[in-house]
Design a protein around this nucleic acid. Structure first.
Lengths: 207, 207
DNA sequence: CATGATGGGTCAGTATCGTTGACGCAAACC
DNA sequence: GGTTTGCGTCAACGATACTGACCCATCATG
């Protein structure tokens, strides 16, 4: 059924550009479903657009996220590490002195999963653990020079990908990208992200 | 063959040259976040923004992608399936009659990895394999009613997330989101995505 | 100061998803 | 009729995640 709708709707082929524009204009608003066309196919077309719109979003997120991480993954692979190591480097680098508990909350994994990744990183000299000043049960995590260097290397690799995409898309698109990505996040992730943004690297944590 | 594809996939593309040319440009700067005047600190601020900008992108992609998939993951978990099953449902649903080889190219995984996921899905009646008409070595993959129903369920779950994000961000932001995500993709993924978009479900593949 | 709660580490077992390498088979191609 | 191609499969392995249980050091409180 829906397949027939799609086939019927798309007679031409290469006007992808015009199609995308049309989606952007009419698609992203939930209400006002029939304000566009007054023909009998208006509602059906709108439904089609909304469906194709999401399918496209699924594709974009799948391919885009994969290629975004591909460069860093290659570097990590050479060092016998994985994406989980990169996450630790990234978030510890972003918040030096972060506690294990806070890192667990950000990564949303279990203690055991983190331990398997973190412990070798401490042994190999990428991360140091220091007892908390106020609460000495805490193990505050900080990157060593070596850890910072690796994080920097992964960072530069991804910077190429992201900056190329940003430049290609333009600054207005970047703002839109940020808004949509933030919208995809749940309430918890949003507040976590806010707290990360409000406490950039090098500043003391106020908790 | 597949190994070469993978190797090529991980390699960076010709985007880097453009990056070096535009290195000092501010094309990816946030809109009006700070002064872009030519004071003594302008260069430093620009560097800072570009760095923080990427760190933010990393955060957004990490949290956003995770929450984007979280809803579908929960449904899949109840059925004893994982994200890999969803990808099969999604891409087979998008291109009914796709060959195993083409699906492998899209997913960029090995035959073995796909087989471990695909075989149970065939046995459980989510996917059917039919011999190719022209080339009978091919096993053309199509969703059954049951497969379509599950895909639809996962689709609706993600639709809520994405549509909420789109509505919240606005249609202009959606267009920007698409442009940036497309820019994150490498050349291979782009051409794959193009071929998917140009051959929507229900139409014969022209290869 | 004893007691319970908390931050963190660890052991044991399990599941998903990915990998490499090699081999088999049927159909297609030249 | 030999070679290539499309697909399936066996065996072994590795990374990342999970649960449940248990331990230790430290903090906080009665």
């Amino acid at each position: 059924m829906s397949a027939e709708q799609k086939a019927a709707h798309r007679e031409g082929t290469a006007e992808t550009e015009a199609r995308r524009r049309g989606e952007a204009e009419s698609g992203a608003c939930d209400k006002g479903a029939t304000d566009k066309g007054s023909g009998p196919t208006a509602g059906r077309n709108l439904l089609f657009l909304r469906e194709e719109e999401l399918r496209l979003a699924q594709d974009l997120l799948f391919f885009g996220y994969r290629d975004f991480t591909a460069g860093a993954d290659a570097i990590l692979g050479e060092l016998g590490m994985g994406r989980a190591h990169h996450r630790v480097l990234h978030f510890v680098g972003r918040r030096p002195g972060i506690t294990v508990g806070d890192l667990l909350a950000i990564l949303a994994i279990t203690k055991q999963s983190l331990g398997r990744v973190l412990q070798p990183m401490v042994e190999d000299g990428y991360v140091v653990q220091t007892a908390g000043a106020a609460d000495r049960r805490q193990r505050l995590l900080t990157l060593t020079d070596r850890g910072r260097a690796l994080e920097r290397r992964l960072f530069e690799r991804q910077r190429e990908t992201v900056m190329a995409a940003y430049r290609e898309a333009g600054s207005a698109a970047v703002e839109g990208f940020r808004r949509v990505m933030r919208g995809l996040m749940g309430a918890e992730a949003r507040s976590l992200l806010r707290s990360i943004e409000d406490e950039p690297a090098g500043r003391e944590r106020a908790r």
